[in-house]
């Protein structure tokens, strides 16, 4: 899997940086589009995975689901940071400002706080079963503000941010098929990257719990 993923990502990088035409009227800076969108997608996907694994933990009380949920949240947080950073670069290129409290920027900032709080809460509970149950419940609660901030809030308030290409895709028609295909390839690659990182991080969590031997 690693090798396929490696080759896939190399191809995506080449397509995005060398083959694709300059994007969005921003020249080469616009190419960040191919990385920003997948980062944002993966961060949301990771939080959904964390919530799902949290639900499975609460139903089964098997420590392994807690490892999976915590691992997904960590990777989600990492990709949220990447999406925020790449978004700031894009914003600088497009509007000449790194950060201007646009609704979508505000929303992503709050999502960072929500999942930062997840780890603050998690680290402050010592007893493993309690920590697992509470993290799981928080992951499920956190998905509500996450959905609200990512999907609902930006539609309520006017934003400079282009409306999301995926899903929904009102702009689909306006994007050239080639660009769209590169974006899809990048999305698939980043999702694969997430799965690969998630599995590694899950193993790290298991080792930290002393459970690896049993699994």
């Amino acid at each position: 899997m690693r090798i396929v993923l490696g080759i896939w990502m190399v191809v995506v990088v080449i397509l995005a940086l060398l083959v694709s035409p300059p994007l969005l009227g921003l020249g080469d800076a616009g190419r960040i589009f191919y990385f920003h969108v997948p980062c944002a997608w993966v961060s949301f996907f990771a939080y959904a995975v964390a919530a799902y694994c949290g639900a499975r933990y609460l139903l089964s009380r098997r420590a392994d689901w807690d490892c999976k949920s915590a691992a997904a949240s960590q990777i989600g947080l990492l990709f949220t940071v990447l999406a925020t950073a790449s978004g700031a670069v894009w914003a600088e290129a497009a509007w000449g400002q790194w950060w201007n409290w646009d609704p979508r920027e505000t929303a992503v900032f709050i999502v960072l706080l929500v999942y930062g709080a997840y780890f603050a809460l998690r680290m402050s509970i010592e007893q493993p079963e309690q920590r697992a149950a509470i993290s799981a419940a928080y992951a499920l609660i956190a998905i509500v503000p996450a959905i609200f901030l990512i999907y609902v809030a930006p539609r309520l308030v006017e934003s400079l941010h282009p409306s999301p290409v995926l899903p929904g895709g009102e702009e689909k028609g306006s994007i050239e098929p080639f660009i769209r295909n590169v974006l899809f390839a990048s999305l698939a690659g980043f999702t694969g990257l997430f799965v690969w990182m998630w599995r590694i991080q899950t193993r790290i969590e298991r080792i930290a719990l002393g459970k690896d031997a049993q699994l």
Partner: peptide, 27 residues
Amino acid sequence: TILAAMVAKARARSSVFAVAALPVLLP
């Protein structure tokens, strides 16, 4: 209410509560 029940099992309860509740209450 549920966040309060969660932080009751944590250390440094009141500061963790503020941290956990703030982002959920921002929207």
